[in-house]
Design a protein around this nucleic acid. Structure first.
Lengths: 224, 224
DNA sequence: ACCTGAACACCGTTCAAGT
DNA sequence: ACCTGAACACCGTTCAAGT
């Protein structure tokens, strides 16, 4: 039976996860589909369109995750401090975006790397702005905060995946390249920080997210 | 006279600014140096090493800019609220990093895109951690805040340069692709935000930076 | 509608050999 | 020390022609 567009994208996603973005070539993809390279161009305008589709799927997984959470009745759905739980919902979306990106090799590079935002990216932005407003953040700021969170998450995961996802080619399972101690000469503060190993990604991400949400609370409820 | 390593890197930086990262090929670079492709490999291990060098130069420009500012005697050097001006110095460094990235085509993509941090990246991190500590932020948080700021700036400029730098090939000087209004159907909050044109990058960046620094102040001086 | 065959214009990298 | 010539193993994309 013939290949459909979604088959091509599915196969591309698998290839991405197995081999990484740098190894995702049209020829390898065609081979995996049992087809010649040229055939791909019947389904796709060009490679960029394919990558944009993959990127938007990843963002879509973040939206789906958020919808899933809505099912589990959280403790305080009604009443209580609406502001607190509202900003917490915004933070939860940011965490979901990170999880979605981490769920695919080079996920952040893929999402960050394409010009036109896909439908899911627009949906995510719209939702986050709405969530912020519901939490009591007025309009221009609600959008800026959304932008800030997305930039932060993207930048963070980009860094997070840089080492792990790109070099995971060779079979040497060495724990981590760490950082040559010799390079820390003359960098006392950085050295002190890295003294007991590199900080945990989870902790660092949570800390940054905490800073942004704290700033948002402070900026919003000026009187308090 | 023979080509030196720095000549190669200089030429690569020029080519980057004129043509963008996607057009920066070893063959084009060799042509520009009046040399055959293979000759480059006497000066460089591979293309990745070249890109890492470019990235670290860009970060270096940010450090130089900060040093320059130190010359201009700021209002309150001594005494006064050390905490306030201290965190402001951290924000100034973040702004300088953005300026340095914006100073080169695809600057953010280049800086974000390479695994091992160069010497200037390490220097920047060390300085920012120290600045935060001098502003009264205790150690683990000082490092997390630095990380947060760098992730934010990178993510932000990546987005900022996505449209402008990559498509600036065709001579159609159309103002901006904007966003197809039809795509905003069902996205009321996003539509409302974009009602009077896309928000200014400068304002958006400042707002995000303000959120992070406000959060840092709030988290640091817990008692106040 | 979906694919092949074959070509085009590119890549990054290596390496013997030249000077 | 620095470079040429030539090759190798790849790319993304196009397009007539087939079924």
């Amino acid at each position: 039976m013939p290949t459909r567009r979604t088959d091509v994208i599915d196969a591309a996603m698998n290839l991405l996860d197995e081999a990484g973005l740098d190894e995702l070539s049209t020829r390898r993809l065609a081979e995996r589909l049992g087809v010649r390279v040229g055939a791909l161009y019947w389904h796709l305008k060009d490679k960029d369109e394919l990558l944009a589709e993959l990127a938007d799927r990843i963002v879509g997984e973040c939206l789906a995750a958020a919808d899933g959470e809505r099912g589990n009745g959280a403790a305080a759905v009604e009443g209580g401090d609406r502001t607190e739980s509202g900003i917490e919902r915004l933070a939860a979306t940011a965490r979901a975006l990170r999880r979605a990106m981490l769920g695919h090799r080079d996920g952040a590079r893929l999402v960050a790397g394409h010009a036109v935002p896909g439908p899911n990216s627009l949906l995510l932005a719209d939702r986050m702005i709405r969530t912020a407003r519901e939490a009591g953040v007025p309009l221009p700021l609600a959008a800026y905060a959304t932008d800030t969170l997305i930039s932060y998450v993207t930048g963070f995961v980009l860094q997070e995946q840089r080492i792990a996802d790109r070099t995971a080619r060779e079979p040497e399972p060495g724990p981590a390249p760490a950082l040559d101690p010799a390079r820390l000469a003359g960098l006392p503060d950085l050295a002190e920080m890295l003294a007991d190993g590199p900080p945990d990604d989870e902790t660092a991400f949570t800390a940054g997210l905490g800073l942004i949400t704290a700033g948002l609370r402070r900026t919003t409820s000026a009187g308090e």
